[in-house]
């Protein structure tokens, strides 16, 4: 029998195509998304700082599926269908969530296809009505501070800071300029104004920046932010 080269290729291709089908595991495809919200309003945090963990029991070793909230408080997981337990670990995030005293309880989540799950949290404070303006290359923000938790769990304000950055990632780690006031120096929480120094020139003559205000709560690691705002500046 004469062995023809194109038969070999044909057979090899068939084998490869079939085996691909055979040994590749199915990828997770159910999408669990949501936001951290308070009264329907998104809680803004620092990116990569507020962890959200999922646990699934019954598969041997116990470990978390780890995700973090984005700047605007949104999160997403790509999962297999099944029963999960969701938790925002103790002391994480500038809010109280599903907790009695200091410890938090898990939330049972059943994933079956794509779904949206907003996590209702109670922030210690909220920044309201933030208005930004640019005076030359200096950025100002005027805003109010609303204390949400006033019972025995209330915390003091450590400081409030206006952060300005050239990209939309704005936080203590990512900023060009910032201006800060200590919590003890705030006399009228209903209207606080902060102004940064003039910004240095930005490469490419970018004529806009992003700004938001972060509030540091005493003994809480994560800051709570106001929504991100794009501010146009003079060159």
């Amino acid at each position: 029998m004469k062995l023809k080269f194109h038969y070999i290729i044909l057979i090899a291709l068939t084998v490869m195509a079939v085996s691909c089908k055979k040994d590749t595991l199915e990828a997770p495809k159910s999408k669990l998304t949501g936001r951290l919200v308070y009264n329907g309003q998104a809680i803004n945090v620092e990116q990569n700082r507020v962890p959200i963990e999922l646990y699934q029991k019954g598969f041997g070793l116990v470990g978390d599926i780890n995700g973090t909230a984005a700047q605007d408080g949104s999160y997403s997981f790509l999962l297999f269908d099944g029963n999960y337990q969701l938790i925002i670990p103790n002391n994480q995030g500038p809010f109280r969530w599903n907790q009695t005293g200091n410890s938090r309880d898990t939330l049972n989540v059943t994933v079956n296809g794509d779904q949206t799950l907003d996590l209702e949290v109670t922030p210690f404070y909220l920044i309201t009505n933030a208005q930004y303006s640019a005076n030359g290359r200096a950025i100002s923000a005027t805003f109010g501070i609303d204390q949400i938790i006033t019972d025995a769990n209330a915390r003091d304000i450590e400081s409030v800071t206006l952060f300005v950055n050239k990209t939309q990632f704005v936080s203590g780690r990512d900023n060009l300029k910032s201006a800060s006031v200590a919590g003890s120096a705030i006399t009228n929480p209903a209207s606080v104004t902060l102004t940064t120094d003039a910004l240095d020139p930005i490469v490419g003559n970018q004529n806009y920046v992003f700004a938001r205000v972060g509030l540091k709560i005493a003994n809480v690691e994560d800051l709570i932010f106001s929504p991100l705002q794009k501010v146009t500046i003079g060159n």
Binding site: P51, G60, L61, V62, G63, D64, P89, N90, N91, Q92, E221
Partner: peptide, 17 residues
């Protein structure tokens, strides 16, 4: 790490992680 905790569930996790 989770391997240690899985093998010995008596080990409690560290705070703030």
């Amino acid at each position: 790490n989770n391997n240690i905790i899985s093998r010995n569930p008596e080990i409690v996790r560290q705070p703030n992680q």
